[in-house]
């Protein structure tokens, strides 16, 4: 917490207005009845009172539910392909929770891996992620089981912590430190402010009671991989909708479709979900026509394949998949029920 700053709550709107000069500022809003990141309206900071997390994860700002990759038009000589107009404004997202901030790190490596994905990375590189430490986590949150926590700073440029009348402000990344340094609206935080923040964070961490042991989940999943009866049982109540994947902060699968009329239109990519039976449908067969195979794939992607590739669990414990599931399918219960390695039949 060295060099931390603070801002009075009544001055937060002023600070965001300042940042609005250089960035498109987004902040939590429930204007249409659903909590989401939306263009900040220039005055409303009431989210400090009601906001716990958004329904749509922060990924949707960088990997939107649907986007045009290029447009296709016709002229006398044939077809013309054009990239969408480039927007040079960077965005500053205010109020990103630690789980969602962490998800961006997990997504970055995917979109930088085999080749650079210009659509995602361009938006990411122009963004400032301003985190808001969790003080009131939900009972579905399990971030502390997956290398995160209510005060984790991974993926953030700046972190704010609500300490009562003030917000504690800490520069995290180089970009964030630069933004914080020399800002006249911010005052130097006192030792008392920092101690208060420490206490609040500790209390938040204690509130997270949903805990799972993910230490050997990779090995346990591998061991139970071919146990069809286990997966049948685990997947029985799943209805194969896309809630847990489309609204997951780390799910990144997408589909590409052409939207064409009369030879003109655009090529779009949109989020896909491995819960759908059409997900891996191929001309000859569908390797995951059975629901249990798809549920297995979802779990293994997050806790086995991804960790094998990138050394991290592709889950941030945000709990959306538990809170929003139509049947209260609970990933933590399933992970808990994985047989220990030596108990498995295989």
């Amino acid at each position: 917490m060295a060099d931390s700053k603070k801002v009075r709550k009544e001055d937060l709107a002023g600070l965001l207005t300042e940042w609005s000069r250089d960035y498109a500022v987004l902040a939590p809003s429930r204007a249409d009845g659903v909590a989401r990141m939306a263009a900040w309206d220039g005055e409303d900071i009431s989210f400090l009172d009601w906001y716990r997390n958004t329904i749509n994860p922060v990924k949707s700002l960088f990997l939107p539910p649907v986007e045009e990759m290029f447009s296709i038009s016709r002229n006398e000589r044939g077809h013309r392909i054009e990239l969408p107009p480039k927007d040079d404004t960077g965005c500053l997202v205010f109020g990103v929770r630690p789980c969602d901030a962490r998800s961006l790190i997990l997504l970055d490596v995917v979109f930088e891996d085999a080749y650079e994905d210009p659509y995602y990375l361009d938006r990411r590189r122009r963004s400032i992620v301003v985190g808001l430490c969790c003080t009131n986590p939900c009972d579905s949150c399990f971030c502390t089981s997956v290398d995160s926590g209510p005060a984790a700073t991974a993926g953030m440029d700046i972190m704010f912590t609500d300490i009562g009348d003030n917000l504690l402000v800490e520069g995290i990344s180089r970009k964030g430190k630069e933004l914080v340094a020399g800002n006249a609206t911010l005052a130097k935080a006192t030792r008392t402010d920092e101690n208060r923040a420490r206490k609040i964070r500790l209390a938040a961490e204690k509130k997270i009671t949903r805990k799972i042991d993910t230490g050997d989940s990779k090995e346990r999943l591998l061991a139970v991989f071919e146990d069809e009866s286990f997966w049948q049982q685990v997947s029985a109540k799943c209805v194969s909708c896309g809630v847990c994947t489309l609204l997951c902060p780390t799910c990144y699968c997408f589909d590409i479709n052409d939207a064409m009329t009369g030879g003109e239109g655009s090529r779009c990519r949109s989020l896909d979900s491995c819960a759908f039976s059409s997900y891996t449908k191929m001309p000859m067969e569908n390797p995951r026509a059975d629901k249990w195979r798809r549920v297995r794939n979802k779990l293994c992607h997050k806790y086995e394949f991804y960790p094998m590739l990138f050394d991290n669990i592709a889950c941030t414990g945000c709990g959306r998949c538990i809170r929003l599931c139509p049947v209260n399918w609970d990933i933590t219960q399933v992970l808990d029920s994985l047989p220990a390695k030596h108990e498995s039949k295989i």
């Binding site: 249409d32 659903v34 989401r36 749509n56 539910p65 209805v239 194969s240 909708c241 896309g242 809630v243 489309l246 609204l247 989020l271 979900s273 759908f276 139509p326 049947v327």
Partner: peptide, 14 residues
């Protein structure tokens, strides 16, 4: 209203 639909098909699947 439907601008925020995610096409998760929960409505159909339940």
């Amino acid at each position: 209203e439907f601008r925020r639909c995610t096409r998760c098909y929960a409505c159909r699947n339940v």
